[in-house]
Design a protein around this nucleic acid. Structure first.
Lengths: 347, 347
DNA sequence: TTGAAAGCGCTAACAA
DNA sequence: TTGTTAGCGCTTTCAA
């Protein structure tokens, strides 16, 4: 009821209003509202009551300026549509929940100039830390990060030099290990299907590791196909169809992500192709989302939630300092053979 | 190079630093950096150069406090894992890209108390507007929103009274129309499969609309099954299996979302069940993600991206004022029969 | 076109 | 345990 009384004033409430309503100094009100220092139970109760009655919401802008502390963590990711990034966000959220910090998300759409802009924008709020996807940034972005004077964690990739801390997996190694597993299972005529995204460095590195390991085994990718936009499941089907028509004697398809892999799998099953007898399949990411498919796709977990949690932990541990001390946490993705990369099983 | 010189100072740069480096007053520097008022080209160039050399990043906290303007929009959603919300976010991002506003996301996990906390937290940054999912909030949350003195848009639902503006669809109507389509196609023995989330009000309303329309046709839901957590695709399979074993004579399954619907579809196809001849299926959301399934699931588009865009547009149009003027935008979801809700086709 | 002064709403530091 | 004072880094306003 009292809320309505004060809501008439068309000016946001200030500490001063609470101070006057409770008959206590602004400073003491501030202390109560932040659970700081010693305040008698009596005053505390009085202040709390007044604040509640008025419907007072503190002004963090002023607080942050005065205290030179901002409990925000900038999180910069390429996309929200990718499914992978919401999972990273979940990990970050979970971890930061136990701290006073709050994540603020910026999306770059895989565009370096956009990343630069988003970063500038976020740094201008003077956050307590930055979590940013990838190790590749423009020189200007790198300079901003270096000079920011706050902890930085670059995530999801470990193939390169971080500016400060880093939490991720080696996509090069992931590609290599997948190639080794495929070759080890006896597959020889391998096709690759991926995205048309030169700026998705992690996908690129997986592919490089993959071809490198194949080369070591005296093999190479026989055919390739790339897509761009659209529903990944559909694209997976279409690309698989196109590739198998063009190069019918392939015995393995490596997809750069699980969604297109699932599309490929559904296509093969539709056409009555024996998987993995006639053709083996593998994707990347370990999306639990897809667990219910008719056959379990071989994949490799990218440790998304854990990466988020670890990065958030590093920021939380170092908030208030000027760096995360160059911590490097390299996680090891686990290869999951599923049911599409075992020879001598379904054949 | 100059960046390094100044980066040594372990204090963030201020306008004053730029002022001294360029020999121009702080005020003029401020004007240049905000493209404000008349500044001679000569001084402008000088200032810009100095700012760049120093690597100056403005302090928005101070700017916001002084100008009483914050170009942030609070976006409060229940979850990021749901796939639906990232799409809404994309719509919001797209729209706000053309404005000086920037979204800040808060996640509630469908918990009212968490929503309250997140809201309080966000309002304390004095954003230019709030976009919040749903029409159901705690009394405290409603009070905060009412008293915030900024434009509010409640999104995704239109069955209820908004605090200020509203952009969404009627889930009750969506449920009703789906029921009508199902009954109209000749299905009679209908099962429902959904989530165990009493606080997902939109799912609840769809279900209510659904049963209501069935009742009008003299029918009722014959069997129900609810799930909680886990991979939706898997759960869809499992629930479908359980229900069909328990109640084998069902001729239609209505799923509360497309993911479990897809699981159900895959299960039926696996088992060689004739869809929709023997049993019809429908989901909800219109996830393009699933377009590549072996058979196109009947569904209803929830207009997610458009809801995001519209809400963002309303905020952008009303930023700086104290409300969005009670705009109500009710979108109409389009029923998509797909290939699992047509009688006289596959039969 | 430029500059000087005042203050945004809060908190740090000190005093009582 | 409580209060006072002086800013935080910028922008507003007004004067030059």
């Amino acid at each position: 009821m009292t809320q309505n009384i004060t809501a008439n004033e068309n000016r946001p409430l200030t500490l001063r209003d609470v101070s006057e309503a409770s008959g206590v100094s602004e400073m003491t009100v501030s202390r109560v509202l932040r659970n700081r220092g010693d305040v008698s139970d009596a005053t505390r109760a009085k202040v709390l009551q007044a604040a509640k009655d008025l419907g007072y919401v503190p002004n963090k802008i002023a607080g942050a300026l005065a205290s030179q502390r901002v409990n925000l963590v900038a999180v910069i990711i390429p996309s929200l549509g990718n499914l992978v990034f919401p999972e990273v966000m979940t990990g970050i959220n979970d971890m930061l929940d136990e701290s006073p910090l709050q994540p603020v998300v910026g999306v770059t759409n895989y565009e370096p100039e956009r990343e630069e802009k988003v970063l500038y924008e976020m740094l201008s709020w003077r956050p307590s830390g930055v979590i940013i996807a990838g190790l590749e940034h423009t020189e200007a972005s790198r300079a901003m990060l270096r000079n920011s004077g706050i902890p930085i964690v670059e995530i999801m990739d470990s193939d390169g030099e971080p500016i400060d801390a880093m939490v991720g997996i080696s996509h090069r190694r992931a590609g290599r290990e997948m190639a080794q597993a495929i070759v080890g299972a006896g597959f020889r005529r391998i096709g690759f299907l991926g995205t048309k995204m030169p700026l998705d460095h992690r996908a690129r590195k997986r592919f490089e590791g993959f071809t490198e390991a194949l080369a070591k085994a005296g093999l190479e990718v026989i055919d390739q196909e790339f897509y761009d936009g659209g529903s990944a499941l559909v694209k997976g089907r279409e690309m698989t169809e196109a590739m198998l028509k063009r190069t019918p004697d392939l015995d393995f398809l490596y997809f750069s992500n699980d969604m297109i892999g699932a599309g490929g799998l559904l296509y093969c099953l539709d056409k009555g192709i024996d998987v993995p007898g006639q053709i083996g399949l593998a994707g990347f990411n370990g999306l639990r989302l897809l667990d219910g498919l008719p056959r379990k796709l071989a994949t490799m977990d990218a440790c998304r939630a854990e990466i988020g949690r670890e990065a958030a932990r590093i920021i939380a541990d170092n908030a208030g300092t000027d760096s995360s001390g160059g911590i490097r946490k390299v996680l090891t993705p686990v290869l999951d053979l599923g049911e599409t990369l075992r020879r001598g099983q379904a054949r």
